[in-house]
Simulated assay, not measured.
Amino acid sequence: MESLIAASGPLPPITVHRPTTRVIDGMHRLRAMTLMGHKTIAVRFFDGTEEDAFVLAVKSNIAHGLPLSAADRGRAAERIITTHPRWSDRMIASVVGTSAKRVAEIRRTVGPDGTGELPRIGRDGRVRSLDVSEGRKLAHDMIVSDPGLSLRQVARAAGISPETVRDVRNRVLRGEDPVPGGRPRGLPARTTGPQPADRAGRTAVGCEVAPPPAVVVERLSADPALRLNENGRDLLRLLTIHTVRSEDWNRIIESVPPHRMRTVAHLARSCADKWSEVATRIERNASQLT
């Protein structure tokens, strides 16, 4: 207070909630001006709700007011959780000056807020779902279709964090499902019945299962010998076209109009023949190297 009275220059304007005329930020400045005999003070009005005014008051106090005690921060977080249940833990934590982990603990003590699993609003203003499984699946499809996308590009499009995208990418490389707890994509579910036998009559138990094509293409895309020359990039683009999921192939097949079915079937078979020829020639070249 004494430092404010002794200040030679004009004091910053105080912030006032217009609907209630309550001072949100600047109570000490107001008292200092009153003690100095001033009848007026510069004011910046806030026209939001009382709930938002409380948030602004806490945020302003954290920025340049007296430090709040841990108990005060906890009570502020509890109130904001009640009035702004859709705000993420990180966003509330940034307002009250505590950790997101602490906010999550307080949220659990407050109890159900009626929002269930509705998406929450993050610090960047973006809305993200609490259930990120759909975002993980979308990120998986984007990574498979365009391995060159950055983590942030995929994160923005899928509505998940870059670290979550990184986890999805690692799961793709390992041939795992993008959602934790799911079974590997493109691999058959484990059964308890008899295992299929190979041509020599040996079962597939204990044999290494080949990863899905999407995973193989992802690994190839990381090979400088392919991605750093034009022909290699052309090959990767061609291979990527064929890494769509089974359900996507079904959707594509069903979309072919009746009057074009035979034509498309002929072209598909021609492409298959061409790929078969490509495979034979590559295998021949490989055998010549051994």
Rank of each mutant, 00 (worst) to 15 (best):
P85R: 04
L30K: 12
I62L: 13
T20P: 09
R73E: 02
A53M: 05
V16Y: 03
M27D: 05
E78G: 07
A71Q: 10
H17G: 09
H28E: 14
L66F: 12
G37K: 11
L68V: 06
L68C: 09
M27V: 12
D52V: 08
F54D: 03
A57M: 09
G48S: 10
R75D: 11
D47I: 07
L66Q: 11
L35K: 08
A63I: 06
N61Q: 15
I81G: 00
S60P: 06
L66W: 08
G65F: 05
L68G: 00
I24V: 13
T34F: 10
P67Y: 00
R86Q: 10
H38M: 14
H64C: 08
V58Q: 05
A57P: 04
W87Q: 02
A32S: 12
D47A: 10
T49Y: 06
W87M: 08
R75Q: 11
R31A: 14
L68A: 08
D89P: 00
N61P: 06
R75E: 12
S94D: 09
K59E: 14
I80N: 01
I80F: 01
M33W: 05
V43R: 11
G37S: 12
H84T: 04
I62Y: 02
S60C: 09
D47R: 07
E51R: 11
R29N: 04
E51Y: 10
R79E: 10
G37H: 07
L35D: 15
A93I: 01
R31H: 13
R90G: 12
A93R: 00
S88V: 01
G74S: 13
T21V: 09
L35F: 12
F54L: 15
G48E: 04
A93C: 07
H38D: 15
I81Q: 02
G26P: 01
H84A: 05
A63L: 12
M36T: 14
M36K: 15
D25L: 03
S60Q: 09
G37N: 15
A63N: 12
K39M: 14
H17I: 07
H84G: 04
L30F: 06
T34Q: 15
R73Y: 01
D25W: 00
G74W: 02
S69M: 04
G26E: 03
D25S: 12
H64G: 02
